[in-house]
Design a protein around this nucleic acid. Structure first.
Lengths: 204, 204
DNA sequence: TGTACATCAGTGAACGCGCGTTCACTGATGTAC
DNA sequence: TGTACATCAGTGAACGCGCGTTCACTGATGTAC
């Protein structure tokens, strides 16, 4: 980590300020001016490190995907050699990430920046999503080929369910008092789904 | 529908303009000025009909929930007397609504307005969500009490899954090319889930 | 160690912009007689 | 039917605001000798 001449590492300080603002006020509430003020710097200084507002958000998202991918890989590895345990662990890791890094999560999934904005961003995003797909693929290999749904479909199901739980129940959602803790919702929903795949004994 | 003195029904014209803008540019892209211009009217005229920007969005959301609730009730009724068919139909109706009324959907779920902003809004939102809960409750009644998950949990699962499918795969999502049509994803995921509940024969 | 110079991170002032909102008004529509 | 009056939807100008971005600059840091 090389230090800047004056500030000491303005680039990262701006990313951190942006994340805090995004977490606090949503992707809309974030402004360059406020982020620069929070970092103790003039708005113009931002342009030494980023091409503009969008570029700063994209970097925040990129860092989020990096952390996210690491968490997913860690969860996957922890479940091995059981494909079932690996997939369950990645599901849990998804929610855990969203709860622990809400600013990153919003930057990644709600800020409107495209995953294909830069090759860097696309690469790390695919690394993260690839883990779930791998876990789903492992698991499908345990099913008889005759009734084995496509792994990509299974991973899409799990992604959609996890994302829905986060958006609807894990946030201070607008007026929605969650009837159950999001972790319980994810766990139970995932369990029922996996049973439906025929991977868990009918009434364990 | 009483007509205004000059415009003819500015109130609804503003709501419609807002919905079109929200659909086109997201909840952020929507501005009072643009909406009023689209309705052929000065920005100040908006204040004859709404308390302000937020209030206009809230009305758009309210109308969305009204349509949404009607669709859900219709789907529920169509599935009867089969509780299973009713629940499946409401799931499908959720996605169909999101695809057919994207402006409303965004105003309802992504604009940041609280469901409890006004009693009117809360009432109609609960009417809509109540249908899914009723369908889930009907279905749970068919399971032996010993392994019957709470109906509210089941309806939360289905809501989360449906919302996740919409957000991740049914929109021109940022760079995500959906691997499957969202309708197929919803149908297959819901099917696996319901099988997991023990409501569909293990390998029908 | 000391000096001259190059680099370049951050400054501060300025810009044009469109926003949401206010206000006194005007003039078309509706109503009473 | 005609006239006088009341209503009130929409006007147009103005406001203060904070935004993202640009630009020539300055002065602290690093480097060469």
């Amino acid at each position: 980590m090389k230090r800047g001449y004056h500030h000491g590492n303005l680039r990262q300080a701006l990313v951190d300020a942006a994340l805090a603002l995004i977490e606090e006020k949503g992707p809309t509430g974030f402004t360059l001016s406020e982020a620069s003020k929070a970092a103790g710097v003039t708005p113009a200084a931002v342009y030494r490190h980023f091409a503009g507002r969008e570029d700063l958000i994209a970097e925040a998202a990129r860092q989020g995907f990096e952390i996210f991918a690491d968490l997913m890989e860690h969860a996957y590895a922890k479940g091995r050699p059981s494909a079932l345990a690996s997939l369950e662990a990645t599901g849990r890791a998804y929610l855990a990430f969203a709860r622990k890094f809400p600013g990153h999560y919003v930057a990644m999934f709600e800020s409107g920046i495209s995953i294909n904005r830069s090759p860097d961003l696309a690469r790390v995003a695919n690394r993260a999503l690839g883990v779930i797909e791998k876990a789903a693929s492992d698991l499908m290999a345990e099913l008889p080929a005759t009734r084995r749904p496509p792994a990509r479909m299974v991973s899409a199901h799990i992604l959609a369910f996890s994302h829905g739980v986060v958006e609807l129940f894990a946030r201070g959602a607008p007026g929605t008092k969650s009837p159950f803790p999001p972790e319980d919702l994810l766990e139970s929903g995932l369990g029922i789904y996996l049973r439906g795949l025929g991977l868990i004994r009918p009434d364990a």
